[in-house]
Amino acid sequence: MKISPLLALTALLALAITLALGLAPDAAGWSRRGKSDNVFALMFGDGRKLFANQFFTMADVYFHSGYYPSIFDKNSGEQKEIISASHGRKETEEDEKNEDFLGKPRDWIDAFGRNFKIAQHTHLEHGNEREILPWLRLAADLDPQKVETYTVGAFFLREHLNRPDQAETFLREGLRNNPDSYEILFELGRLYRESSHDADRARNVWELGVRKFLAQPLDQQKDNKLVFEEIVVNLAHLEDEAGNYGTAIHWLQTALKLSPNPTGLQKQIDAIQKKMAALLPVAPAKLY
């Protein structure tokens, strides 16, 4: 039997369309990637996290205006300065000295070559901090589970660029992607307290952060004591300002158990106790 090629083509096309219509609803569920609403997740899968780290580093490179150690220099693996800056850490002279990764020129080629590369340690300022934002945005898109991206981005948006609304939106996005992150809750609390001057919201968010931290396994709690200490100390200051001295002392005592600087915290507790003592009603002296 001889089949006409046109007929065969029509039959095959009909079969292909029928199969496509039949399989289409199920095909969407075959690949986990297909479900993703993130274009980077769709394109790179989990490999995107490598790029996210690189983009986060790029933000730090921009923060230093290109003065940054390569993999061949000493200090190449040190903590990113945008992270320490976002925790409010100011640079000391010793830090500056440690970050001079170039050192003295090794030879005349190195000495002459330094005329053609940025060899001066500076940080972005006067609103130029905005230049790190594209890299943080990309890092967040590539790895939504990288919590530092949100906290650092929100810190610079709030503190240096005076844009608390954008900072809050970014933190909220981070919180949607990392619902158990007490780091993001801490930064959100700072935003409410320092930018919105809304102590009640700040308290609620920080208390939630404390609960999230305590809900973690013990070994994870040990590794992340620093943020927890920051939350409880800030809560203590908030309660102190609100006149809730008892609660303030409670938070400071909690921080005291974790802090590497217990003397400073003890002084704060003593100061609050003095304030409490001053408020106590003085018993009237006997006249006779």
């Binding site: 905005r130 594209p134 890299w135 945005r137 660029l161 954008q166």
Partner: peptide
């Protein structure tokens, strides 16, 4: 053409 955080002044990237 990409707009990051609604900031028009970002240019270095």
């Amino acid at each position: 053409a990409v707009n990051f955080f609604r900031d028009e002044k970002i240019v270095r990237y």
